[in-house]
Design a protein around this nucleic acid. Structure first.
Length: 109
DNA sequence: GCAATGACTGGTA
DNA sequence: TTACCAGCCATTG
């Protein structure tokens, strides 16, 4: 298959991969930046965050957060609003996601 | 081609 | 629990 790129036109390769994964995360579930990088098998957490910062506006970016269950500071308020709307498991304090229950384990479950 | 940047992470105090 | 540090790596100027 010649030139198997296509798909995401002007987006960098890694960015396209990240966006694909984020779009597959079902409502009420989340992944950490590190999880996405590991799922792709390349890049790192910072790259994932960087991609969402630049191109994440068209995907459910709030379903990707830090390893401690807190979203990025600049989008914290909006992210928390989505969690409540989607019924994402939150901790008692309600200001961070309960990763133990909310973390998405891929299509397998 | 090189240096700087950043929606991160895990360890230590 | 919070605070700080060094490592990490694709993308950008």
């Amino acid at each position: 298959m010649p030139g198997d790129e296509g798909a995401d036109q002007t987006l960098p390769r890694f960015a396209a991969l990240v966006l694909e994964v984020v779009q597959r995360v079902p409502p009420g579930r989340v992944l950490t930046y590190g999880d996405v990088a590991e799922y792709l098998g390349e890049g790192g957490p910072r790259q994932v965050g960087s991609v969402l910062s630049r191109y994440g506006s068209d995907v459910p970016w709030w379903r990707v957060l830090r390893a401690d269950g807190t979203p990025a500071p600049q989008v914290r308020a909006r992210a928390l609003d989505h969690y409540v709307t989607e019924g994402t498991p939150l901790r008692r304090a309600g200001d961070r996601v309960d990763l133990r229950r909310a973390r998405w384990h891929g299509d397998a479950g």
